[in-house]
Computed example of a mutant assay.
Amino acid sequence: MSLLPFTVRFDPTNQELVLSGKMRPESVAEIADALELVRQSLEKYSGIVYLNVKRLTHINMTAFAALCDILAAGCRTRPDRNIKIITSSVMAWSASLFEMLAASLPNLSVEVYDSAFYPGQSFVEDESFIPILRTQTKMTWRHERELLPRHGLRSGLAMADICCGIGDFAALVQREFKPARLVALDHSVRSLDYARRVAADFDMRGIEYTYGDASQMLLRDDQFDFVTCRHSLQIFDRPEMLLRELFRICKPGGRVYITNEKNSHCLGEPHAESIKWTYEEVAKLFSHFDMDVEMGPKSRHLLLNAGFDDIKVDCFMVTNLDGDPQDFADVIEAWENVYAGEMAVRRGDSPDFIRRFRQGFKDHVFAALHPKGYAGWPIWAASGRKPL
């Protein structure tokens, strides 16, 4: 038996298998379930599939040989698939070991990363919000995939994802709900280029990535059964303009689904007071730049004012207990980098203020990673029907 258990999981957002811990079985039978997950994941997904072994601290030859057999079979049976093994220089043995395998398989490669991994990392390092959005979508999807049917999403609909950003949500909807048509629109050329490249890497077809201004879309009236706009109304200085456009492109009887936050209600324990103070200041900071990250509870009246009826509202708390607590910590660290490192500086805040501001984020990370801690981030999901 292995001295300590290891884990294997598949993340469909990144098409990434993650192995972590110590993989030291005495026989292949001991790891049969893990190997089967690897095999099934390789069979199911095309394009690029990532095998992340950055947190795999040990592997013996029994496990390595069995894993190699599955990877080699996956490469040979599907030459159109590329497998990228992601290692870390912290585990010096890892890269050289897997590079021996890669030398004999043209569609298998090894890459070494020492920072948080997501596909196309080198491209998005300039884009301060993209790291936030990727991990946020990964975490909120656990909740939203259960809520979306309640708000009217089902397979076979014509759908538009407005302010789609880097396209993660659209990709997840495409896989899970299989809309008849899916248009993903954003005003950022770089974000759309990124989304198209990830879709191509993952061999994902059928999403129509479209450049456009969400407040003045070049899309016909009454053409979508389901329209989504997530975490975007809150960063528009005139959200009512965007809602009018969402209403216009939605078919009569169709629904518009929005998500927004109330940042001042982010919470954590221990260090609750420090965390509370920082997120109250986040709301003020965004307000300074004409953005409203307190919008979540306002969703119902915003939708009613825009002309929708049959309003449905849900609130869910994303927490450090949703999967890997490090994911939650990564989001908070990204927020700190942007909010304290860029926005507060641009507002002209003093060094003393920024130090205290940063401390609340650090305390939130501490709460997320503490073995007895709890950290939360509340999201409001709401939808309304366009009257017949």
Rank of each mutant, 00 (worst) to 15 (best):
R356F: 10
L369M: 10
S350I: 01
G348I: 08
A367R: 11
N337H: 11
D352W: 06
L369H: 05
R356K: 09
D352E: 15
Y339G: 00
R346S: 15
F366M: 14
R358E: 11
Q359P: 12
R347A: 15
K362H: 14
V345Q: 13
A344I: 07
F361V: 05
K362I: 15
F353G: 04
A344T: 10
F361K: 05
S350C: 05
R358Q: 13
R356W: 08
N337P: 00
F366E: 12
M343V: 13
R347H: 05
A368P: 12
Y339N: 07
R358G: 10
D349T: 06
Y339H: 12
G341L: 04
V338H: 07
Q359W: 09
D349Q: 11
A340P: 01
R358M: 08
A340E: 06
I354L: 00
K362R: 15
F361S: 02
K362M: 10
Y339I: 15
V338T: 09
D349G: 00
E342G: 02
V365Y: 03
M343L: 13
D352V: 10
A340W: 00
Q359K: 12
A340T: 01
A367V: 09
E342Q: 13
F353K: 00
E342I: 13
V338G: 01
F353N: 05
G360I: 10
L369S: 04
A344E: 12
N337D: 08
P351G: 02
I354F: 01
I354E: 04
P351V: 02
R355P: 07
R356Q: 14
A367H: 08
R347L: 15
Q359H: 11
A367Y: 08
S350K: 04
Y339K: 07
R347P: 06
D349C: 10
G360C: 06
F353V: 03
S350R: 01
F366K: 08
R358L: 04
F357D: 00
E342V: 06
V345S: 06
M343Q: 10
F361N: 08
A344W: 10
L369C: 01
P351C: 00
E342S: 10
Q359D: 14
R355H: 05
R346N: 13
F366C: 08
G360W: 09
R346I: 14
D349V: 00
Y339A: 09
L369G: 05
R355G: 06
G348L: 07
L369V: 03
E342Y: 06
L369R: 02
K362P: 07
D363F: 00
D352K: 05
H364T: 10
R346D: 11
P351D: 13
D352A: 15
D363A: 00
R347Q: 15
D363K: 02
E342W: 07
P351Q: 01
N337T: 13
D363C: 12
G341V: 04
G348K: 05
A367D: 12
A367I: 07
E342N: 09
S350T: 13
F357I: 00
D363T: 04
K362E: 14
A340V: 05
R355Y: 04
F357A: 00
R356I: 06
V345L: 14
S350W: 07
A367F: 03
H364R: 09
R356T: 09
A367P: 11
N337M: 04
Q359R: 14
F361W: 06
